[in-house]
Amino acid sequence: MNFTRGGAPAILELLARMNADNTARGMMRVAPQMFDVSKESDATLNLYGLKRDDNKSFAWQCLVARRLVEHGVRVVELIDTGANDNWDAHGNMEEHRPKARRADLPLSALIKDLKQRGMFDETLIAICTEFGRTPFSDGAGRNHHGTAFSCLLAGAGIKGGVTYGETDEYGLGIVSQPCHVHDYHATILHLMGIDHTKLTYRYGGRDFRLTDVHGKIIPEVLA
């Protein structure tokens, strides 16, 4: 039956509860299968560098991301570490090495896996961070640097093997084609079929959007 058609007011609270029940039931039935990678082939597990009993590593996260996208989850986010012991290398740049070792192979595997399953053309991958680091030292490490940093895009609608924008000879400032965080967001939304200036929500008396009053799509990165 349908509670919402024909202009009659729906029993909204009950409908919401029934939707929530169904989602919870769907989660109980489907989600455990999503997280169980034991039926993946040896070839796939090897591609990600994942041991069969591993249900925790970043490689597991990347493989589960593919499985979730395969089953229609619109947005999957992977966060590699937490608010400590992360890429925040103030003391020593060598601290980057274990983090990179953890992320590098699984991320490349995710791209290869999506390609071999024909999903790379309809999945957008954004690999990003919150800011970069100074070209000068802070001990043997580097300090925070918001003026210039690098982020990646790959997959659906993205030109591969290209760079966009340029920093100066030391990587301190931007000399051409700046891309603000809002521009990055606008470009992602564009590729997902959304005009970032039109996706609004009225709250507290005005229309809000992800990019506020900013954001421009970066056409040069589009395939």
């Binding site: 989850v73 999957v76 890429w87 990003c128 961070t129 970069g132 590729l191």
Partner: peptide
């Protein structure tokens, strides 16, 4: 162009240089 998004956030600010 894209049906799905995989948003990978490498935490802490990796060094571009």
């Amino acid at each position: 162009k894209a049906k799905n998004l995989i948003f990978v956030f490498l935490t802490g600010g990796f060094s571009h240089v």
